[in-house]
Simulated assay, not measured.
Amino acid sequence: MSSIKNLPAGTWSVDPSHTEVGFVARHLMVSKVRGNFADVAGTVVVADDITASTVDVTVQMASVDTRSADRDTHLKSADFFDVENYPTMRFVSTSFDGEELSGDLTIKDVTKPVTFEVEFNGVQADPWGNTKAGFEAEAEIKRADWGLTWNAAIEGGGVLVSDKIKIVLDVQLLKQA
């Protein structure tokens, strides 16, 4: 693991073709369902003092992919994300200490604080002379906090979809000139 001190100051953009915004939920309380959002854009401004850096990321909710067309259609419906009325999810940072990134996550016009545990994977030049940086991050949220409350009781006890959702990020940034 590289030191975050090696991350050059400046403006970076999220590289969507090398970034995954994913989530994990329990299904039937016995297995996990994973999904991701393919359409993500954002800007990271790295300050000389890393703690003054900022993050602003927007995800298009209609780009959800769980490898099941029926489930994706349900997630896009008013039961869950209601993409017709709330097409985006947005995260805007409020603080960063080099290991924890805190900020405001907005889903369906509800904004709540979230803290991600962050791992910096380093900086590298690609073969075309671009400077790239990599990060991984995780946070756990309760979907009900954002009004995502649809569920169904299951015969053996429990519910169809867990309230606890893990957000898993694998992010590559591109340094702007």
Rank of each mutant, 00 (worst) to 15 (best):
P87E: 07
D39L: 07
T131V: 08
T106Q: 14
I4P: 01
S31R: 11
V64P: 07
T58D: 12
L148K: 00
G129F: 04
V30T: 13
K112P: 04
V33W: 06
F116G: 05
L105E: 05
G103R: 03
M61N: 02
K76P: 03
D104I: 09
T73C: 13
D104C: 06
N151I: 08
F80T: 02
L101Y: 13
L173E: 00
N130P: 09
D109G: 08
G156E: 08
D65S: 06
W146G: 06
I141R: 08
D56G: 09
R26P: 08
I154K: 01
T43H: 03
E138N: 15
S77K: 12
I154Y: 04
V55L: 04
E84C: 08
A47M: 07
A153T: 15
V168P: 01
A78I: 08
L101Q: 10
F116C: 11
G122K: 01
A41H: 02
F91N: 10
T58L: 15
P113F: 03
N6P: 00
K32M: 15
K175E: 08
A38Y: 11
W150D: 01
K166Q: 03
S95I: 10
V123T: 04
V92Q: 06
V44R: 09
S63D: 07
V45Y: 01
A137H: 10
F81H: 07
S2D: 11
L160Q: 10
G98D: 01
F120P: 00
T54S: 11
V159Y: 12
K132E: 08
T51E: 13
S17Y: 05
G10T: 06
A25K: 05
D97W: 03
A177E: 15
A38F: 00
E117H: 12
D97L: 07
K164E: 04
G129L: 05
F80N: 03
D163T: 11
F116H: 03
F80C: 09
T66E: 04
T115C: 04
M1F: 11
V40I: 11
P16G: 05
G157K: 02
M29L: 07
D15A: 03
V168I: 01
I154D: 12
G103M: 11
K175A: 12
A41Q: 09
A47E: 03
F96V: 09
A62Y: 07
A153E: 13
E140Q: 15
G98Q: 08
V24Y: 02
L148P: 01
F80Q: 07
K132Y: 01
T54V: 01
V64T: 13
S77F: 14
G158R: 03
L173H: 01
S2Q: 14
A177M: 02
L169M: 05
K5S: 02
W128C: 00
E99G: 09
F81C: 09
V168S: 14
D48I: 00
G98Y: 05
A177P: 14
L174T: 15
A153V: 04
L169F: 11
G35M: 06
S31Y: 07
A153N: 15
N85T: 14
E84S: 10
G98I: 11
A139L: 14
G157S: 06
Q176V: 00
G134Q: 13
A153Y: 03
G35A: 02
